[in-house]
């Protein structure tokens, strides 16, 4: 978390790969408070084209579950912020549901996110829950009760990826989520790419998550990523 009490949390998503430790370090130097590490899946239903392509590339580079866990441990050695693997059920089914959570924590993760495992299913698996604009108040309450630390607010009805505008209905949704989640921190993601969007969304929530755009910028290397993350940080702190 950032030092100032009022500061908004900046979460950066990176796809696991050979360069991830250096990229994660750059993201943290730029001002990221938390890094999500994508463990690639061949059929990622929640993801748009950017992260889907990044997953295909990562798998082609041999980023299986064990390689991703080793990458997570390598990132852990380089940065001090919270690390959260984000993946899909199929990887956990193959690895062992509980065993996956344990292995991730042993490698330095503070929690995990499973994009296709909604609140209420496999409740014994500690993880960060997601809520969507379509979620009922009852489901938001359930997710807030079961979530591990903070609640991931999916800002759009759709998959991951940049949008030109922040959804007009986000304010009402964030308010609804806040009421149902009470004092559980809410970080919003999906569709946020520019500093302006980051500032707009952060006014409604406790933090933001930037994924697809960060993955695109990361392809240009650590220096570009550091600069991009710093621009988001600046927008949140301004």
């Amino acid at each position: 978390m950032s030092s100032a009490a009022s500061a908004k949390t900046l979460v950066i998503y990176l796809m696991s790969g050979p360069e991830t430790p250096a990229l994660a370090e750059a993201a943290v130097e730029g001002g990221a408070d938390l890094v999500e590490l994508g463990f690639p899946f061949s059929d990622p239903l929640a993801d748009g084209p950017v992260i889907r392509r990044a997953a295909e590339k990562a798998l082609a580079q041999g980023m299986g579950t064990q390689a991703c866990l080793e990458g997570l441990a390598a990132v852990r050695e380089r940065v001090g912020v919270a690390l959260v693997p984000m993946t899909y059920s199929s990887l956990l089914e193959a690895y062992g549901w509980e065993r996956f959570g344990e292995a991730a924590r042993a490698a330095g993760a503070s929690s995990i996110i499973v994009a296709d495992l909604p609140a209420g299913d496999r409740s014994e698996l500690r993880r960060i829950q997601l809520v969507a604009p379509t979620s009922t108040d009852e489901r938001i309450r359930l997710a807030a009760e079961q979530t591990d630390g903070w609640l991931y607010l999916v800002t759009v009805t759709g998959t991951t990826g940049s949008r030109s505008e922040v959804s007009l209905t986000l304010a009402a949704f964030a308010e609804r989520a806040r009421a149902a989640a009470r004092d559980v921190p809410i970080y919003a993601g999906f569709g946020i790419s520019t500093p302006e969007q980051a500032r707009t969304v952060a006014e409604l929530t406790d933090g933001i998550v930037v994924g697809s755009r960060a993955v695109e910028v990361a392809e240009e290397g650590p220096a570009a990523l550091r600069k991009y993350v710093a621009s988001l940080r600046h927008a949140l702190d301004a």
Binding site: S42, D43, T65, Y88, S89, S90, L91, L92, A94
Partner: peptide, 21 residues
């Protein structure tokens, strides 16, 4: 196949040992 998760359901799927389809 082996037990796996594809397109919203747990079933028997063609997948590798990591659960990649």
């Amino acid at each position: 196949g082996r037990a796996g998760v594809l397109h919203g359901a747990r079933s028997s799927v063609l997948a590798d040992e990591d659960g990649q389809i």
